Every structure is written in C-alpha cells, then in structure tokens.
Amino acid sequence: MNMVRLVEIENRIRQFPIAEQLWLVERVAQHIREQLAAESSLEAQLAAMAADPNIQRELREIEKEFDVAMSDGLELQ
C-alpha cells in the first residue's frame, strides 16, 4: 500500500469520534497479536518437525533417493 493511500485512511479515521478511533485501534492491535501468535505457532511446529526423529529419518531416505540423480554430472541451476 502506498503512503498516499495510508494518509487518506488516516485522515478518514481522524473524522471518527474518539470512541470509534479507540475501538478501531484495539481491533487492529488484536489482529496483529493474533497474526504474531499464528506465526510463532507455525515456527514452533516447524521446529518440532525438524527435531522429530521420524521426520529426520524420512528426510535422509529421500536424500538417498536423490543421491543417484545428484551424481549424474549435471549442474543445478
């Protein structure tokens, strides 16, 4: 979003009564907290998967399957 659009939104918000501005700010803050929590949760899930011995074993097996293709002499681009 460009700055002109953001300033336009800000100017419109300033026209609202203070109670409605406060309500809007609280809603935006809640939305941001929820997004951060979801991202943190996803990162935790990915870290748990990376540490899982079963996942690590599966990744090693997949890597072995591709070893033949990697040794064919072709360069990756």
Rank of each mutant, 00 (worst) to 15 (best):
P53C: 11
V25Q: 13
M49W: 11
N54K: 14
E58M: 12
E63K: 05
A29S: 09
F66G: 04
E58R: 07
V28P: 04
L59N: 06
M1K: 09
W23V: 06
E20D: 13
L42V: 08
A51L: 13
L24H: 02
E63P: 00
E20T: 08
K64S: 02
A69W: 05
D72G: 05
L59F: 05
I55L: 13
D72F: 04
K64Q: 03
M70N: 06
D52C: 10
E43L: 15
H31K: 15
L59R: 09
V25G: 10
I18C: 02
L22R: 13
A69K: 03
V68H: 01
A29H: 06
Q30D: 12
R5Y: 04
Q45L: 14
E39M: 14
E34P: 00
F16H: 06
I55A: 11
G73P: 10
D67T: 03
F16K: 08
R33W: 01
Q35C: 07
A47I: 07
L59C: 06
Q21P: 07
N11R: 14
E26W: 01
Q21W: 08
P17M: 13
E20I: 08
A38N: 06
R33M: 12
D52P: 06
I62L: 10
L24A: 09
A44T: 07
E63Q: 09
Q45S: 12
L24C: 07
S40N: 12
P53R: 09
R12V: 07
E58T: 05
L24G: 06
V68T: 01
E43I: 13
D67H: 02
L6Q: 04
R33V: 09
S40T: 13
L6C: 01
V4P: 00
Q56D: 03
F66N: 01
L42D: 07
A44P: 00
I32P: 00
E8Y: 08
S40K: 15
D52V: 09
E43H: 09
R60K: 12
E39Y: 04
E63L: 07
